[in-house]
Simulated scan of single mutants.
Amino acid sequence: MTDTTEIIVEPGRQDIVITRVFDAPREKVFAALTDPRLVAQWWGAGGPGELEISEFEARRGGTYRNISRDETGTEYAFRGVFHEVLAPERLVHTFEFEGMPGHVALECTDLEELEDGRTKYTELSIYQSIEDRDGMIASGMEHGARAGLEKLAELVESS
């Protein structure tokens, strides 16, 4: 499988745009983004360790909290609130790394149904400042995003 993930980080801006085309129907991709049993199979796939989903309610006003543990047992927790869940085409939620509280991003994910049964995934993440966005990039976010979307592709593109 070839990684077709595109990550756009323009200098002087507060956003990151991630796109990828999945060889799967939009409904299947949306389910993998909103069903906690499926999210656990691909989210945080940037390295060895495990993922615990302690909260996950994909509905307007619902919350999520995911805890990644690395091979040494160190925990990295992420949380957010769902602001819009429009099946099967759009998700809007906040994203915050608990290790750096107060640095909250707004993530808008759109799923476009393509004519050939594939789905175009576009995620726009908007940060509170250019410094916050640049800090996210410096943290290795690009590697984690690519690895997670690769695992998501494996999940939705199989049978």
Rank of each mutant, 00 (worst) to 15 (best):
R60P: 10
L106G: 03
H93I: 04
A58L: 09
E55G: 08
R60A: 11
V104S: 09
G73Q: 14
V39I: 15
P88C: 01
L51W: 02
T74G: 14
R60V: 15
G46A: 13
A77C: 06
E96L: 08
V81S: 05
F56L: 03
M100L: 13
E52I: 07
W43L: 15
V39F: 11
V39Q: 09
S68K: 10
N66Q: 13
T72A: 15
H93L: 12
H83C: 04
T74L: 08
V92R: 03
F78I: 14
E52Y: 01
E84H: 07
G62C: 03
R69D: 04
Q41N: 08
E71I: 11
T72E: 13
E89T: 02
D35F: 03
S54A: 08
G44T: 05
G61I: 11
L91G: 09
R37E: 12
F82V: 14
H93C: 10
G47L: 01
I67T: 15
E89L: 02
T72F: 07
A87G: 02
E75F: 09
Q41A: 09
V85E: 00
G46N: 12
S54N: 09
D70V: 13
V104M: 09
P48S: 11
L106N: 09
S54C: 04
E84D: 13
L86E: 14
D35I: 03
P48V: 06
R65E: 01
G102L: 11
E71G: 12
E50P: 09
L91I: 04
E57G: 12
G102A: 00
N66P: 01
H103R: 05
W43K: 08
V92E: 00
G99M: 11
F56E: 02
G47K: 08
E89S: 02
F97C: 05
Y64G: 08
G47N: 02
G102I: 06
A87Y: 00
H103C: 05
Y76A: 13
L51D: 06
E52L: 03
P88T: 02
R59S: 12
G46P: 12
T63W: 01
A58G: 06
V39R: 14
G49M: 09
M100P: 03
L51F: 12
R69H: 12
M100I: 12
W43H: 12
L38K: 13
R79L: 05
E96V: 11
R69A: 05
D70T: 14
E84K: 00
A45L: 00
G49V: 09
A40R: 06
D70A: 13
Q41W: 02
T74K: 15
D70F: 07
G47H: 04
E71P: 09
G61P: 00
V81D: 03
P88D: 03
A87R: 10
V39Y: 02
E50I: 11
F97W: 01
R90E: 07
A45V: 07
L91A: 02
E84N: 03
E107C: 11
Q41C: 10
V39P: 06
E84G: 10
P48R: 11
P48Q: 12
A58N: 11
E98N: 02
